[in-house]
């Protein structure tokens, strides 16, 4: 089991890094989302993959069964998924808006805030 998770994480990290290093705005966002998914899998795996018993309490007890899965890692990964989903949505809208405003989805064309230098000594003036 843990080997499958390991492979999934490795593939997601490789694909995520490849896409995040691309020059296309949309691919950068998707790449970061894939990286986030890989990290979420790591968080999930941190609670051990051995047990398949859900960490539910029996009616009269105050502790889950000894062989139950670690509930904390599951709580952590749920939080992380919610947060990364919110950021992904924001980033998609941001990327779409940026593409419309700048007329290009090439990251190298995004130089409005940091215009390229024309003078060899002094930096260009910024618009306000």
């Amino acid at each position: 089991m843990i080997l499958w998770v390991l492979m999934a994480v490795s593939i997601a990290v490789a694909a995520g890094v490849y896409l995040a290093l691309s020059r296309d705005l949309f691919r950068v966002v998707v790449g970061l989302a894939l990286l986030g998914a890989a990290v979420n899998l790591v968080v999930f795996a941190a609670g051990r993959m051995a047990s398949r018993t859900p960490p539910l309490l029996a009616a009269a007890s105050d502790a889950p069964a000894a062989a139950a899965a670690d509930p904390l890692a599951q709580a952590l990964v749920l939080t992380a998924i919610v947060i990364s989903f919110a950021l992904l949505c924001f980033a998609l809208v941001l990327g779409a808006r940026l593409r419309r405003v700048s007329g290009s989805d090439d990251v190298r064309a995004q130089r409005a805030a940091e215009p390229a230098a024309v003078d060899p000594v002094k930096p260009p003036e910024l618009e306000d």
Binding site: L87, L98, S102, A113
Partner: peptide
């Protein structure tokens, strides 16, 4: 345009930091 651009650069690089932290 420059605000959106700044936000995108901020997001892309800080997101990597956040993910490293979570890992």
């Amino acid at each position: 345009r420059r605000h959106l651009e700044a936000a995108f650069k901020y997001f892309a690089l800080n997101m990597v930091g956040t993910l490293l932290f979570l890992a």
